[in-house]
Simulated scan of single mutants.
Amino acid sequence: MLWKSSLPESLEIDGRRLTLKVRRDIRARRLILRVDPADGGVALTIPKGTSNRTAIDFLERHEGWIAERLHKLPPLTPFTHGAAIPILGDLHRIEHRPDARGGVWREEQVVFVTGKPEHLQRRLTDYLKGEARKVCRTRSEALAGKIGEKVTRVTVRDTRSRWGSCSTSGALSFSWRLIMAPEAVLDYVIAHEVAHLRHHDHSPSFWRLVSELVPDHQTQRRWLKREGSLLWRFG
């Protein structure tokens, strides 16, 4: 696969050309390899002091692992007329109505999108981001009030490294793609970040608080680990 002493910009695995994203991290303790579920690219984290030759050998040894991960990725589902996407875990069929007005709305298990075909992807994405922002803000504030804490701000982003985050100032951030996860999973991630308003660590006290907020949080954590990559295959 590789023969040069410098790291390549792409890899060829099972006849597929994959982008290689390399990040050198002084905090990393070991080489870390990840397949990006959004585009199928490969990300390699290299700790300080690790040579390119060592990194290349690591990649070569893990060709089979990369191929297996690619094989397990669910198929891509673009936002197009007739496609089915989950919203809070329930499948909705996309219905494009180019001549209608009203932007984007839902009725039962259908999500309607108006406007030109070339704007469908952006319009539906913006709608889902807005829904995610609204749900995450409302539920975060409610849970924070329940434990006597306060949320200063809620934002949604298209993060791939984490589902949510909490700053020391009380600002919470979530992946907007959680709006497509089952509702219980979304509630767990919200509870996880709200618990960080009180405990800025993953201590036993933190997990006790998470358990109080979401008693079955282990089930939701397992879903994210097993099925979470599916959320990046939509859109």
Rank of each mutant, 00 (worst) to 15 (best):
T114W: 14
L124D: 02
Y127E: 13
V111T: 12
D126N: 11
S167G: 15
V111N: 06
K146A: 09
L120I: 14
K146I: 05
C136Q: 10
R162K: 15
G164M: 14
K116F: 05
T155V: 06
G170S: 05
T155W: 13
Q109G: 08
V135L: 13
E108T: 13
L128Y: 00
V154M: 10
Q109A: 13
G148K: 05
A184P: 09
F174H: 07
V154C: 12
A171L: 08
K134F: 10
R123K: 14
A142M: 12
G148Y: 10
C136K: 02
T125D: 01
R157Q: 13
S167H: 06
V113F: 11
R157W: 01
L143F: 00
K146Y: 06
L143D: 03
R122W: 11
A142N: 01
F174R: 10
G130W: 02
V113E: 02
S175T: 10
H119W: 07
A132H: 10
S173Y: 08
V111A: 09
E131D: 04
V156A: 04
L120E: 06
S165K: 02
K116V: 07
R139Q: 13
R139C: 01
P117V: 03
R160E: 10
S165W: 08
I179H: 12
R157Y: 04
V135A: 06
V154H: 08
E108D: 15
G145I: 11
T114K: 12
S165Y: 04
R177C: 00
L178K: 10
L124F: 03
E118V: 12
F174A: 04
T168R: 11
P182S: 07
R133C: 08
I147K: 00
M180F: 03
V151D: 00
G170K: 01
A132G: 04
A171H: 08
S140P: 08
K116A: 14
R139A: 03
C136R: 03
A181I: 13
W176F: 09
G145Y: 03
P117W: 09
G115W: 01
G130R: 07
R177M: 05
A171E: 11
K134E: 15
R160M: 05
F174P: 01
R137P: 00
M180T: 11
I179T: 11
P182N: 09
V111S: 03
T168E: 06
L172F: 06
G148I: 14
C136L: 15
E141H: 03
R122E: 15
L128N: 05
S167M: 06
R153L: 11
L120N: 00
G170R: 04
E141I: 05
L172D: 03
L128S: 02
W176C: 06
R123M: 13
G145K: 09
V135S: 04
K146T: 09
T155E: 11
R160H: 07
G164L: 14
K134G: 09
Q121T: 14
R177G: 08
A132Q: 13
L172S: 05
M180L: 12
G115N: 10
Q109S: 15
T152K: 11
S169I: 06
E118A: 10
K116C: 01
E141N: 06
Q109C: 07
A184D: 14
E183Q: 12
L143C: 02
R139E: 13
E183K: 14
P182R: 11
W163S: 00
T152P: 01
I147R: 00
T168V: 08
E108Y: 02
R153G: 01
E118T: 10
